[in-house]
Amino acid sequence: MIETIRAAFVIARRDFSAIIFSKSFFFFLLGPLFPLGIGIAAGGLGSQVSRDIDNAVIGVALSPEEAETLLATRIRLSRNLGSKTLPELVILRSLSGQEADIIAKLDSEKSLNAILSGSLAKPVLTGSEGDVNKWRGKITLLAETALSQPVEVEIETRFVRQTGSSSERGQLLTAQAGQAILILLTMILAGMVLSNLVEEKTNKIIEILAAAIPMDSIFLGKLFAMLGMALVGIAVWSTMGLSVALAFGGNWGALPVPAVGWPLFIILMILYFSMAYLLLGSLFLGIGAMATTVREVQTLSMPVTMGQLLVFFLAYSSITKLGEPVEWFAALFPFSSPFAMIARAAQMDNLWQHGLALIWQGLFTMVIIRFSVMLFRRNVMKSGQAARKKSLFARVAGK
């Protein structure tokens, strides 16, 4: 076992150094920046369109007379200022006006950004700090106009923390984003294992290595070398992305916090990406063992790529079904397990399950590697039980 690991380390160091210090690796790092730039531009355009289309909804918990007056004032002002300038008002007739009742209503209604209570002379605006500060001036304008008197209205503001349902919605968004990042990086980077193996098969380098080092060590070394290259690429892209984000600024506190916290979530993202990469990479090694030409590689890898998308859809559809059979299946099935478990990390704070999942994924990776080695020996090295039987039949036929 020690000799296998030592030989695998030699192969990993050889492949890693050859890739990292090559000219092609520099262009590999630059490659994703072009679609990323287009994505950022499209995202900015999409957010601008969203701001133009969407409008805030403010719940009105005033007396029926004052609520109707405020609603009529909003309609009158919107004719001059525009319907998107002022927030939409929804009259809430079931509220008592108590702070606890208002917060409970704000928590239960997903469409409400804030709630206006009290009276027109002394209004109280309750909501998150961002929404309250954003719409405070417009609500003041509405209240002063509705009073029909030259009276300056002072709005009392009440900020609420992220409530239970909003916290769950934020964690759900974090889970979806984590899964999307994992599948995108895995599909972009895992295919390089296959191209590297086929290239060395074509140049007969793999056969020279197999004569000196056990095949298990070669496959393990190549797999971890490509994983190291992928992690270096991710580190470079992440550093550049964070630098751009810090340069332009942003409200980092508004990011939904995962259940395990950001430090552990980032660590689990790295671990689950590594396991997803190793699982898919080991499967590609098996494909490379069977393929002899680039055309065969494309033919054999296409079902795996489509299957990976189906696996992602399975994990994605189970995000909102924690504890249900379909979610358990996604968490236990090795190829969907990394994506399902990162969603659990965003929504559940217990850590023991992640240790078990990582061990299970690692064991299944070793099984696939052993199977890939067996295929390589039979299809390329012409060794193993099948090859011995074929040789025996040939000798018998010759006699």
Rank of each mutant, 00 (worst) to 15 (best):
M1G: 13
R6M: 06
A7L: 04
V10Y: 07
D15N: 09
S17I: 11
F27V: 12
L29C: 11
L30M: 11
L30D: 07
F34W: 09
F34K: 04
G37K: 02
A42Y: 06
G46A: 15
Q48W: 11
A56C: 03
A61L: 02
P64V: 03
P64F: 00
L70D: 05
A72I: 04
S83M: 08
K84S: 15
E88L: 03
D101G: 13
D107P: 04
E109M: 10
K110Q: 14
A114Q: 05
S117K: 00
A121Q: 14
D131Y: 07
D131C: 01
K134F: 14
T140Q: 15
A143P: 01
T145R: 10
T145W: 10
V151A: 12
Q162A: 13
S165C: 01
L173T: 11
T174S: 15
L185T: 09
M187P: 04
L189S: 14
M192I: 08
S195L: 11
S195D: 08
L209V: 12
A212T: 15
M215A: 13
M226W: 08
V236C: 07
L242Y: 13
A245P: 00
P263D: 11
P263H: 09
L271G: 12
L279W: 04
G281H: 05
S282A: 14
R295W: 01
E296F: 09
G307F: 01
T320C: 01
E324Y: 09
P325N: 11
R344P: 05
A346P: 04
T365Q: 01
M366K: 06
I369Y: 00
R370T: 09
R378P: 00
Q385P: 13
Q385S: 12
K389V: 13
A394T: 10
R395L: 14
R395A: 12
A397E: 13
